[in-house]
Simulated assay, not measured.
Amino acid sequence: MRKISILLAGFFALIMAWACVAPASAQQSNVYADVKSRGTLRIATVAGNPPYSSVGTDGQPTGYDVDIGKALAEALGVKPEFIIVDVPGRIAALQTGRADVTIANFTATTQRSTAVAFSRPYVVVGSVFLALNGSPIQSIEQLNDAKYKVAYARGATSEQTTAAVVPNAEKLRFDANNDGFLALQSGQADAVFMDSLQAAAYVAKEAGKYRILPGNFSYEEIAIGMPTGDFDWWRIVDGWVGQFNGSGANNTLFKKYFGFDLPAIK
């Protein structure tokens, strides 16, 4: 983490230098002022969504998104404070002022952008159906049958996409992505609809156990969520993400948790 924060420190120093010479009449970020005054960056994230985020045996949050939050907090010169929320809570935490940012495998969509602000993406994913390798299901057309059960996380983009792609399959709705994955492992579900990179990480980690069914069913830009109405806070966080992506720091963290290089963000 120290090496990553050193790579990004220069960018944050430039932002602070600009702020010092900006006109006194320029609007100051209320969120940034609160973060600095408090000395902590409040980060909403979810549990049960490895390798993005989960809670370790020590009770502390861990994962790719968690380390991104730590890197951002260090660049800002404050300590990270994690707030565990459910999937719908990713937006509510920002709207109610409980969190300064949401870093939680959070897809930037037009609908969500009417309620919260988003940075540029730090990873771009698709959505796929994951099945056990020994499953008789070979295609989405075959999966789209009332005799098969498909698991997905409530409140996520997967909810609408699953209904559209396999309308005839029985749906199993879970509070967390990992709960759907566990349903697949236990035989409660025949397939789970999930993030394409998350699925690829499971396949790579346990070779021969899982199989991704043919087809990709979404394009999703995963970004940092922020409260609306604070341009300076958006500018600071969005600029940091750009440097995080371009410096190679993002790839380092991604490879640590997923086991392969970060795909090009485009």
Rank of each mutant, 00 (worst) to 15 (best):
T228G: 05
F118S: 06
V87H: 13
K149A: 11
V203W: 02
G155C: 07
A92D: 13
A151I: 10
E81L: 12
A44T: 08
D145L: 11
I6T: 14
A73L: 00
D230C: 07
F11I: 00
A75C: 03
D179H: 07
L253C: 03
D67A: 01
P136T: 12
Q142W: 11
I137H: 06
A264K: 15
R42Y: 11
V124H: 14
A22S: 05
R42G: 07
F260Q: 04
A92W: 12
I43V: 13
E81S: 14
A131K: 10
S113Y: 02
G59Q: 01
G77K: 04
T96H: 12
T110D: 07
V31I: 12
Q95E: 15
G239L: 05
F258N: 03
A189K: 07
Y64I: 04
A200S: 10
P61K: 08
A117T: 02
G59L: 01
F174Q: 01
R154M: 05
T102I: 11
F82D: 01
L184M: 07
S196N: 11
W18G: 00
K209A: 14
A204Q: 14
A104K: 10
F129W: 06
A17V: 01
A24K: 03
A33C: 03
S218H: 02
Q111W: 09
V66L: 05
A191H: 08
K205A: 15
L213I: 13
T109G: 10
G69P: 00
A183K: 07
L182F: 08
K36L: 10
Q185V: 15
Q27F: 02
S29T: 05
G180S: 11
F258K: 04
R42C: 09
A151E: 07
Y257T: 06
Y32V: 09
V125S: 15
F174N: 04
G126E: 13
D195H: 13
L7V: 12
K256Y: 02
Y64T: 02
A75D: 07
V66P: 06
S196G: 14
G63T: 01
W240V: 12
A131Y: 08
Y210R: 15
A164Y: 02
R120G: 12
I4M: 02
V237L: 04
I6A: 09
L172K: 05
N133L: 02
A189S: 14
